[in-house]
């Protein structure tokens, strides 16, 4: 089946990001495809390039990036929700006259239309909230 995940919670504040990542790995292990993970609301913080958790804690940002790269899963971050919260890729940083970017590939800033498209195109959309 084709799955999509919607993640609405920040990492390290709630369990949701751990749950979503576990679920993503498990569905891939069962032979399904993950057509995309959409990060919205405070979920956009999962794309924070500069996250530096202590070494004895799971690194969620790296975890998502590794999953995206290993399985070709698009990691789509709502651009409107991200910009408000200080999450900018290089292009947006330049556009807004900011030094340094806080989002990098494989995460991509994209419109909310992608969420609707993912949700209606896939067989299942699973939401993880705070």
């Amino acid at each position: 089946m084709r799955y999509a995940i919607l993640l609405l919670a920040a990492p390290y504040s709630h369990q949701a990001s751990h749950s979503a990542l576990r679920f993503a790995r498990a569905l891939l292990a069962r032979g399904h495809t993950l057509e995309g993970v959409f990060f919205y609301h405070e979920g956009v913080h999962n794309a924070a390039r500069l996250a530096a958790p202590p070494q004895d804690e799971p690194h969620l940002v790296d975890g998502w990036a590794a999953l995206g790269e290993a399985h070709g899963v698009p990691l789509q971050v709502c651009i409107a929700a991200a910009l408000r919260r200080g999450l900018l890729d290089e292009r947006e940083a330049r556009r807004h006259g900011k030094q340094g970017a806080s989002v990098e590939a494989p995460f991509e800033l994209t419109g909310l239309g992608q969420l609707v498209d993912l949700g209606l195109r896939c067989d299942r959309l699973i939401t993880f909230g705070p």
Partner: peptide
């Protein structure tokens, strides 16, 4: 943010 999702979906003729 919930309303934004609704408006975007409607703009895509859903």
């Amino acid at each position: 943010e919930g309303l934004d999702a609704a408006l975007v979906a409607a703009a895509f003729e859903r």
